[in-house]
Design a protein around this nucleic acid. Structure first.
Length: 289
DNA sequence: ATAAGCCCCTGTGGGC
DNA sequence: TGCCCACAGGGGCTTA
C-alpha cells in the first residue's frame, strides 16, 4: 500500500531513469483512469516531485532549458497496488516509452490513476488540491496541528483525510497512533496528545523513508521498487498486520477493529480510549449558542 | 460546508 | 482438499 514513504522511494528510484528523457508515447486503455496522457507525447521530463501520495512528473517543451519552470504535469497516484516495473507483466496497465526505453506501470487492482494537467491545475483532483502540509517539511507546524486536532473527530479518519498532514495512509496512521499512545477513535485530542502525535508522525515517516518504505507479504499489495527491491520498514511495525501478536511496549495482544471501513490495529492497553468528559455539556445545559 | 458511507477492482486467504 | 466469499484499501463521489 503505497503511502508517503513508498511514493517518495519510488520518486527517488525512477527519477534517474526519467529526468531529461523525452516521452515518445504513453499507451494504455481505460482513458478515464489515465486522462489526457497524449498531451505528454513529445514532452521532456525535467524532474519528479511528490505531494503526499501523488507523484508529479514535470513536463517541458523538448527545446526548453531544463531549469525553466514546467508548464505541464503528469500526475500519478499509485493507488493500492500500483508500481513501476522494468519489464512488462500480467498486470501492466500503462506503458511509458521514452527515448531511453520502456517503463511499465503495474497495477493489479487498478486503483491507480494518471492525468496530464497544466502545472498546478488540480481542480479535478480534490484531495491533491486540499492537501495538507508535508510531514517532513517546515510547513508542518506543531501549533497548527495541535489547534486543529482539538476540534477534530475520530483521529485516524481525520489523519487519513490528508488535510491535517499529507501522505499518511492506513499503515503509518496505525503506527503513529501506537507511538503516540492514542486510540484511533479518540476525538478532540488534548494538546499533549496532539503534540505526541505530531512528533510520532514525523519520526515514523522519517524512519520509513530511510528504510525505503514497507513491503508486506506476497499479495498484490506487496510494494516493490521498479527493479524488484523491497523496503524494510515492515520489520519496525509495532501494530500494523500484527493482530494477536504482543505489543512491543507492554506485551498486551494487539487488537484489530474496523474504523471508517479501514482495518485498524492498536494496543488496547497502551492506547485506551479516553472517555469524553461530559461535565462541560451538562454545565452548558445541552444547547449551543 | 463538513462528515459519513458507498464504490471501484481483483488476488488472496480463511473458513467450512 | 477444494471451493467460495469476504476482505484489502485511497480517494472520488453521493448523500445527509
Amino acid at each position: 500500500m503505497p503511502e508517503l514513504p513508498e511514493v517518495e522511494t519510488t520518486r527517488r528510484k525512477i527519477e534517474p531513469l526519467l529526468a531529461g528523457r523525452i516521452i515518445l508515447n504513453i499507451a494504455h486503455d481505460a482513458p478515464q483512469r489515465y486522462r489526457d496522457t497524449a498531451l505528454a507525447h513529445g514532452r521532456r521530463i525535467s524532474g519528479l516531485s511528490r505531494r503526499g501520495k501523488y507523484l508529479i512528473l514535470h513536463l517541458i517543451p523538448p527545446e526548453a532549458r531544463s531549469d525553466e519552470p514546467h508548464d505541464l504535469e503528469l500526475i500519478v497516484h499509485l493507488g493500492m497496488t500500483g508500481g513501476f516495473r522494468l519489464e512488462e507483466g500480467l498486470h501492466t496497465r500503462v506503458t511509458l516509452t521514452t527515448d531511453a526505453g520502456h517503463l511499465y506501470f503495474n497495477d493489479p487492482r487498478r486503483f491507480g490513476k494518471m492525468a496530464v494537467v497544466p502545472a498546478g491545475a488540480y481542480g479535478g483532483m480534490p484531495t491533491l488540491a486540499a492537501m495538507g502540509p508535508e510531514p517532513l517539511s517546515d510547513d508542518f507546524r506543531e501549533e497548527d496541528f495541535v489547534r486543529r486536532a482539538a476540534g477534530a473527530g475520530a483521529v485516524k479518519p481525520w489523519l487519513l483525510s490528508q488535510k491535517p498532514v499529507s501522505g499518511v495512509g492506513n499503515i503509518y496512521a496505525d503506527e503513529s497512533l501506537w507511538r503516540a499512545r492514542i486510540h484511533p477513535a479518540q476525538t478532540n485530542l488534548s494538546a499533549p496528545e496532539a503534540g505526541r502525535l505530531y512528533r510520532a508522525i514525523r519520526e515514523v515517516m522519517a524512519e520509513a523513508v530511510a528504510a525505503g518504505g514497507s513491503s508486506l507479504g506476497d499479495g498484490p499489495g506487496n510494494y516493490r521498487q521498479h527493479d524488484g527491491a523491497v523496503g524494510f520498514f515492515q520489520g519496525q511495525h509495532a501494530v500494523y498486520g500484527r493482530t494477536g501478536q504482543l505489543c512491543p511496549r507492554c506485551g498486551t495482544p494487539i487488537q484489530k477493529m474496523v474504523l471508517s471501513q479501514r482495518g485498524t490495529h492498536f494496543c488496547p492497553a497502551c492506547q485506551p480510549l479516553r472517555v469524553e468528559d461530559n461535565r462541560h455539556r451538562h454545565a452548558e445545559g445541552g444547547s449551543h449558542a
